[in-house]
Amino acid sequence: MSRTLHDVASGTLFGVALNYQGLLDQHLAAFQQAPYQQPPSKPVLFIKTPNTRNEHDGVVVFPQGERLQPGPALGVVIGQRASRVSLENAMAHVAGYVVVNEFNLPEDSYYRPAVKAKCRDGFCAFGPDWVARDQVTNPNQLSLRLFVNGELRQQNSTANWVRDIAQLIAEISEFMTLHPGDVLITGTPEGRVDVQPGDRVEVEISGVGRLANTVQAEAAR
């Protein structure tokens, strides 16, 4: 029996910030200032809490008085327990891949991603299905595109990652065990756009799939 997306991606959702070179370059000047003095030397992680889980064709609620930005990303589904794995063996711990749209409110700090901005209900959509690792020849060479109401608004390639999948797994598993079902959200590129209630937002990743969600205004309180 084939395993569904919910079967294989039932664990913790780990996001990686600043994993596109263009985005990192945009912030290099700020990272030279106090209190940091230098860019991050390790992956900058955040967690999308269970309440953020959403799905293909799911509704994303636009919070009153805020700005909302989609975050197209490739999700890496962990298939084997990974603890202090080597770079050479890291990909053996991958089950497959999924399209992710990691919604959030605009952020002031990449070093300290705000829970309020990242972890609202329904702010992490993924699907519509997953693709097994062996069905993707090179996950480090995939095109990624964001459409709003059918118009292309953002595009990039996983070739522009700061750290590829093997590097992420090796570095993260140095200090934290990754478990089967966990999902690594490998980062959103520079050029995030604002969306509005009524917008249909789609993320397309070559060889993986196309994920669609609709933005809906928050109900009046």
Results as ranks from 00 to 15, higher is better:
residue 9 A to F: 04
residue 171 E to T: 11
residue 122 G to D: 07
residue 21 Q to A: 12
residue 195 V to R: 02
residue 190 E to W: 01
residue 135 Q to P: 01
residue 52 T to E: 08
residue 189 P to Q: 12
residue 132 A to R: 11
residue 202 E to C: 14
residue 74 L to H: 09
residue 103 F to W: 15
residue 64 Q to D: 08
residue 115 V to W: 09
residue 90 A to I: 03
residue 1 M to R: 09
residue 72 P to Q: 11
residue 131 V to R: 12
residue 216 Q to W: 08
residue 156 N to M: 03
residue 203 V to N: 03
residue 93 H to W: 03
residue 36 Y to K: 01
residue 220 A to T: 12
residue 3 R to C: 09
residue 158 T to C: 05
residue 137 T to G: 05
residue 126 F to T: 04
residue 65 G to C: 02
residue 93 H to A: 06
residue 160 N to A: 10
residue 218 E to Y: 01
residue 2 S to C: 02
residue 30 A to W: 11
residue 59 V to F: 09
residue 87 L to E: 07
residue 42 K to A: 13
residue 212 A to M: 09
residue 126 F to H: 14
residue 128 P to E: 02
residue 64 Q to G: 11
residue 45 L to V: 11
residue 4 T to K: 09
residue 4 T to W: 00
residue 102 E to K: 08
residue 146 L to M: 08
residue 54 N to D: 06
residue 117 A to S: 15
residue 15 G to D: 05
residue 131 V to H: 12
residue 195 V to I: 10
residue 77 V to T: 05
residue 97 Y to A: 10
residue 99 V to K: 00
residue 83 S to Y: 15
residue 102 E to V: 02
residue 131 V to D: 07
residue 146 L to Y: 08
residue 46 F to Q: 10
residue 163 R to Y: 15
residue 90 A to L: 04
residue 217 A to S: 13
residue 23 L to V: 05
residue 91 M to Y: 13
residue 144 L to H: 03
residue 144 L to G: 07
residue 110 Y to L: 11
residue 114 A to P: 01
residue 112 R to P: 00
residue 112 R to I: 10
residue 40 P to A: 06
residue 70 P to S: 02
residue 85 V to F: 05
residue 199 D to M: 09
residue 101 N to G: 07
residue 29 A to D: 09
residue 57 D to F: 12
residue 92 A to W: 01
residue 59 V to E: 10
residue 103 F to E: 08
residue 160 N to E: 14
residue 55 E to K: 13
residue 221 R to E: 14
residue 154 Q to G: 06
residue 81 R to I: 12
residue 82 A to G: 07
residue 30 A to T: 02
residue 9 A to D: 01
residue 56 H to P: 04
residue 138 N to R: 11
residue 127 G to V: 00
residue 94 V to A: 06
residue 219 A to L: 04
residue 136 V to W: 07
residue 34 A to I: 02
residue 194 D to M: 06
residue 52 T to W: 01
residue 85 V to H: 08
residue 209 G to L: 02
residue 111 Y to F: 15
residue 219 A to C: 00
residue 92 A to D: 15
residue 130 W to Y: 13
residue 92 A to H: 13
residue 5 L to F: 03
residue 156 N to C: 13
residue 141 Q to Y: 02
residue 149 N to H: 05
residue 123 F to P: 06
residue 210 R to S: 03
residue 28 L to A: 07
residue 6 H to C: 04
residue 178 L to K: 00
residue 144 L to E: 11
